[in-house]
Design a protein around this nucleic acid. Structure first.
Length: 567
RNA sequence: GCGCCUGUAGCUCAGUGGAUAGAGCGCAGCCCUGCGGAGGCUGAGGCCGCGGGUUCGAGUCCCGCCGGGCGUGCCA
């Protein structure tokens, strides 16, 4: 099969027939225009959809319907005109023009069946694409202040980010994952002071917590830990010095426990970027100067303001407080300057929690003020997570006393289930995480349903090996049952799912696909005996089973989950 | 008040402007002489919050209202 897209990799071949259909349709539409059958209006993006109704074929094009208005023609007539120029397409058996103007395509069964061999050949690169054409994209996520433990909402963002990183790197993007460590702001100072106060308290010395300090119990635990390890070495120091030193130790401890938890959740980063370094490297001063030169900085009330109203924002924002301390926002501007102009990422994706919503617009405005196209910055907001257990509904709030930490969640729920559940909801939606369902190790739990599918497949392949079957020469054309074809069709959908996730940055399609694939496989399994006395048929079916294993394992792996051989 | 998100089956949620709106759980049934029953099949259950609009076509886009969440600091 010939490749339709620019490939920069070695063994990159596109299996996506959908792309081919779109391309051919566009050409035919142009030809119809040149032949005078359709007025020469500008063509809409050719979108090929998957009809829900099998009577409508495997793919459907709506280009004629979309053209109708501009062309001032009956869409059916347009569709017929385009259809006149449609050449034969490999893999497409037939097409038909249907009222009110759809062009429906039906794939050739024979072609579809042959794709099983194609998948086996591709193995775990099946579904990879060159969509991104090597675009360098930075994915920044989690980036929680190291002032305390992660909560479940952070876990959601972490899973979202790591999954998108997997998908994008499979789709021809060069991806770098980064955690921005806010180790410089006033919140950190506040945390250090709180920790120091607790430390003195642990040692029975007079102490005073900052009024807006961190009152969580974990600070006391941390202080106790430090007191145990370091005894009373900080007692003799002047307060400022002691706070700085003990703060540094606290920061490292919190950070390493954050790292550990994320690792347990299957989330890793190439870069841990220090906010402090923005000041040390001079980028911060540089962007302040730049913004000043461009006339976006104004001093009033003792502070330095970003005059974002000049750029259409509804209010100005403080960059440097009247006490001389830069705001988080100002540091973030320097950080984004660093991302775009010093490290030259083509594209930056930030994943923030819903509580940072108000920051989105001004960040985009600031990027614009630096002369960078805001289109290169994409900010995803992951909404709140609520936990429930039966009737008990607990909201997760940083401010409230009863924080539910990611640690607590992971103590109860295994990683794969956490990941699958977090991924199953679109980032835009607030989610209810049902602990009861998550902990069930039964068919009620979709995670086990999917993984069971994989284990079942592994079991069949294991048995085949034990019985000495060599299916490498199997003839896939023996796969003619409806259940077999349905399974093959589902496998052919996989590259489209990956492309959709890479394009929309909405990974919830993955768990849904995984369930769908598992269901289709189980159905096939019920109807088609794989290992039987018919050696030829067995070999053919083993090929299909192996192809299914490849796709199912990959779907799970992209989601950061295990594909178990046994359960 | 203003900004962002959200409202789809009893519950939790999918649904790239298209043709008859889906899944899981729950509910009512059915299917084990053979590869993993942690399975398969069937059924009931919907004014897609409400009202306008755009469009050949709206769960999807726009406006208004109602309900829920988050934000709205010289916090991050």
């Amino acid at each position: 099969m010939r490749s339709l897209s620019h490939c920069y990799g070695s063994s990159c071949v596109e299996i996506m027939i959908r792309k081919r259909i779109a391309e051919v349709l566009e050409q035919s539409a142009v030809q119809a225009q040149e032949g005078g059958l359709i007025p020469k209006v500008s063509l809409p993006d050719v979108f090929i959809e998957r009809p829900q109704n099998p009577d409508h074929g495997d793919y459907a094009a709506t280009i004629a319907l979309k053209l109708a208005r501009a062309a001032k023609m009956n869409p059916l007539e347009i569709a017929n005109s385009i259809a006149k120029f449609l050449p034969d397409i490999e893999g497409v058996e037939s097409f038909s023009v249907v009222r009110p103007g759809f062009i429906n395509f039906t794939l050739s069964k024979n072609w579809m069946i042959q794709q099983v061999d194609e998948i086996l050949k591709r193995d775990d690169t099946y579904g990879d694409s060159s969509l991104g054409e090597g675009t360098r994209v930075q994915l920044e996520f989690v980036s929680v202040n190291p002032t305390g433990p992660l909560h479940v909402g952070h876990g959601r963002g972490a899973v979202l980010g790591s999954t998108l990183a997997n998908v994008l790197s499979r789709s021809g993007y060069s991806v770098e994952r980064e955690y921005y460590v806010n180790n410089a702001g006033s919140q950190m100072r506040n945390f250090y002071a709180s920790l120091y106060a607790r430390y003195r308290e642990v040692l029975g010395l007079p102490s005073e917590m900052p009024s807006d300090g961190y009152f969580g119990d974990y600070v006391i635990d941390l202080a106790r830990e430090i007191a145990n390890e370091r005894d009373e070495v900080f007692v003799g120091l002047p307060d400022e010095e002691a706070i700085a030193e003990i703060g540094q130790i606290g920061l490292e401890k919190v950070l390493s426990s954050i790292k550990e938890e994320l690792q347990q959740l299957g989330v890793e980063f190439e870069v841990w970027f220090s906010e402090q370094s923005l000041y040390e490297s001079g980028v911060f001063n540089k962007i302040m100067e730049l913004m000043r030169q461009n006339g976006y900085v104004d001093g009033r009330e003792g502070a330095q303001w970003f005059v974002s109203t000049e750029l259409g924002e509804d209010k100005d924002n403080v960059l440097i407080r009247s006490d001389g301390m830069p705001t988080y926002f100002a540091a973030d501007i320097a950080y984004h300057y660093n991302k775009f102009l010093e490290r030259s990422f083509d594209k930056v994706i930030d994943i923030w929690g819903a509580d940072h919503q108000g920051h989105v617009w001004r960040m985009k405005t600031a990027v614009r003020a630096l002369g960078i196209s805001p289109d290169r910055l994409q900010i995803l907001i992951s909404q709140m997570v609520s936990l429930r257990r039966g009737e008990e509904l607990l909201k997760v709030s940083k401010r409230a006393g009863d924080i539910i930490t990611l640690r607590e969640l992971m103590d109860e729920v295994v990683t794969d289930v956490c990941r699958f559940f977090f991924l199953s909801r679109s980032a835009d939606s607030h989610m209810d995480f049902d602990l009861e369902l998550a902990k069930k190790e039964s068919m009620d739990n979709p995670v086990y349903y999917v993984q069971y599918g994989h284990a079942r497949i592994a079991g069949i392949l294991r048995l085949a090996r034990e019985r000495g079957f060599d299916y490498t020469q199997g003839d896939v054309s023996l796969l003619t049952e409806d259940a077999e074809l349905a399974l093959i069709k589902k496998l052919l959908l996989f590259p489209e799912i990956l492309e959709m996730v890479a394009t929309t940055l909405e990974p919830q399609h993955l768990p849904y696909y995984a369930q769908d694939l598992a269901t289709t496989f189980h159905n096939f399994y019920e109807r088609c005996r794989v290992i039987s006395g018919d050696t030829a048929l067995t070999s053919a079916r083993l090929k299909l089973v192996e192809a299914t294993r490849i796709v199912m394992a990959k779907t799970l792996h992209v989601m950061g989950m295990k594909a178990p051989e046994r359960m």
